[in-house]
């Protein structure tokens, strides 16, 4: 007991020290801001409070966004805009020049199209199975099971791991002499060189990203399930409604807004996939798991000749896709919160 009270005292003292530090930190600004208030008056103060945040947004979001368009209409390899040559829509023409759009090889910039197709394939499979498994997990966790908190934590914790760590964990499992191949050999199969096969690389890219992010979507769906009023279920039970019918008529319709938000959120994240897969497969074999963000990264930052214009044009294409998705997401969120 003595130990416990000691511990509480220590944590109290730590909290006290932290609070004191924060207070001192704020006090630094006290005098200059009082002076400013005297100059601009109370009515001007909201702008003063907004200033730092808006400055950051302006410097690192708004200005870059404008420069992005400027970049995409210029050529050459110089970074600074004044050195760049105006080329009009040449970059877009180069990106979008395809004989048949269904086949990346017929395009002038085939890596861009390969990246687009890979991203589309990845996103379709990843989002489908991600939402499916999150849904099943959320429905099971919503039942009256023992140790629910524990199981929820188990499914959730990979969300917090860094993409690099996630990729390294799975790379170690899937290596030629890794434990996955040991398992295959022990059940009488041959070893598989996962990262040499394009299909297996894509499969593991999808699998690993689902493994890492499932907990997040499970959590949102679980919150949605728990918000469904229990008396609806009780009424259905009293009427002797079959459980199948309860699912289709009560659970799914009431969960639908959350499900929509989850699907669009997963799409937004899926289209921007880079980190895990880059560390896991490096985009390989060849370009089998190279996605659109990696195309931008490679074109703009790793090629011997850095093509900033092309990278900008490609990122504007990506931006357009994301814009449509985000509008959908905002609409879906609004519908959920109002409905």
């Amino acid at each position: 007991m003595a130990n416990l009270t000691d511990r509480i005292k220590i944590s109290d003292r730590l909290a006290g020290v932290a609070a004191w530090l924060v207070l001192q930190f704020f006090r630094i600004f006290e005098i200059p801001l009082s002076l400013i208030q005297r100059i601009v008056g109370v009515r001007g103060m909201p702008w003063i409070f907004l200033l730092p945040n808006l400055a950051f947004f302006g410097l690192f979001v708004v200005i870059p966004l404008c420069i992005n368009f400027a970049f995409s209409f210029t050529g050459g390899t110089d970074l600074f805009l004044s050195d760049r040559i105006y080329t009009g829509t040449e970059q877009y023409g180069f990106l979008l020049d395809c004989e048949t759009f269904g086949d990346p090889i017929t395009c002038r910039e085939d890596r861009f199209w390969k990246g687009l197709y890979n991203t589309a394939t990845f996103t379709v499979f990843q989002v489908t199975f991600l939402v499916l498994f999150s849904m099943i997990t959320a429905l099971i966790l919503n039942r009256e099971i023992r140790g629910r908190g524990f199981f929820r934590a188990v499914f959730f914790f990979p969300v917090l791991l860094s993409p690099v760590v996630v990729a390294l964990i799975w790379k170690w499992i899937l290596l030629r002499d890794g434990i996955m191949n040991a398992f295959l050999v022990s059940v009488g199969l041959d070893k598989i060189l996962f990262f040499v096969s394009p299909e297996w690389s894509m499969f593991w890219a999808v699998f690993v990203s689902i493994w890492a992010h499932m907990g997040f979507y499970t959590l949102i769906l679980l919150a949605g399930l728990q918000a469904i009023p229990p008396d609806l279920y009780e009424a259905a039970e009293m009427d002797g409604t079959s459980k199948e019918r309860v699912f289709w008529r009560i659970t799914l319709p009431l969960l639908w807004p959350n499900l929509l938000v989850v699907v669009v959120l997963a799409l937004i994240k899926g289209v921007q996939i880079f980190d895990e897969v880059f560390v896991l497969t490096g985009g390989g074999p060849g370009t089998a798991t190279q996605f659109i963000v990696q195309y931008i990264y490679n074109t703009g930052f790793t090629e011997p000749v850095r093509n900033f214009g092309l990278a900008s044009a490609a990122s504007i294409v990506l931006g357009l896709v994301l814009f449509v998705l985000t509008i959908t997401q905002l609409a879906a969120t609004r519908a959920r919160d109002n409905g």
Binding site: L59, F60, I63, P64, V293, F301, A311, S315
Partner: peptide
Amino acid sequence: PITVILVPVYLV
């Protein structure tokens, strides 16, 4: 998101 403005933020 940052993925859309990588090049210009790099310039800034």
